[in-house]
Amino acid sequence: MSAPRTYAEIREGEELPPQERLPTHRKVLMFIGASWQWVPQFHEQATAERMGLEGPIVPGPARMAFLEQFLRRWLGGAGTLKRIHITHRRPDYHDRPITIGGTVTRKYEEDGGKLVDFELWIENQAGMPSVRGNATVTFD
C-alpha cells in the first residue's frame, strides 16, 4: 500500500504503475468457494472446452475485485469507490499471469464533492486486453 493520496496530489493523465498478478488455480478455487460461485466454466476443464474456452476461467467478479484492489492500493486507502464499470473482452485463465493498470482521466468537483475518474484495464500474458473499465472515486 502506498501512502494515502489526497485529491490535490492527483493529476489528470497520471499513470497508475502496472502490477502483475497471478490468479493461481488454488486462489481461484478459494474465491469460488468463498463466494459460492460454483459455475462450471470457472473450475471444470470439460465444460470450459465445450464453451470454446481453453480451460477454466477467472470469474468476472474476481477480475472486478482485482481492479478495485489495484485502485485502492494506488490510492493508499484514500477516497471512496463510487462507481466501477467494466467490459470483459476475453477470458483470463487459471495460472496465467495478468497485468493490471490504469490512468487518471479526470478530476473535478460536482455537487460539492471532489471526484476522480480512472480508466482501468487488465491485459493477459500476450498483452491483449482482457478487461477494460473505468471507475469514479469520491474524496471528502
Binding site: S35, W36, V39, Q41, R83, I84, H85, P91
Partner: peptide
C-alpha cells in the same frame, strides 16, 4: 453475483459475463 441473476426462458445454457456496472 451468482445468486441474483434471474433465469430467462429459452436462453442458451452457456453464458459469459460481458459487462458489469456497479
Amino acid at each position: 453475483s451468482h445468486m441474483s441473476e434471474m433465469r430467462v426462458p429459452d436462453v442458451p445454457g452457456h453464458g459469459l459475463m460481458a459487462a458489469d456496472d456497479w
